[in-house]
Amino acid sequence: MQQQITLLELVDRVLNKGVSLSGDITLSVADVDLVYVGLRVLLASVGTLEELQLRDDT
């Protein structure tokens, strides 16, 4: 359980915070609309997360 929260916390920070620029860059997540909404739905699937963690552990 703790591991999942940490993972969610990480994604929450790494994807939603930090320096976000536009201009002379070819790509920025900030330009992609509604990313978070889709992500939220995906992350709600605990099975997917557990599967990924297992894969990471092996």
Partner: peptide, 19 residues
């Protein structure tokens, strides 16, 4: 460290230096 958001990509080194 000033952290950047995930997925910030510049075209080349010159663009990084300009920033």
């Amino acid at each position: 460290v000033v952290p950047f958001r995930f997925g910030t990509v510049y075209r080349d080194e010159r663009a990084v230096r300009t920033f």
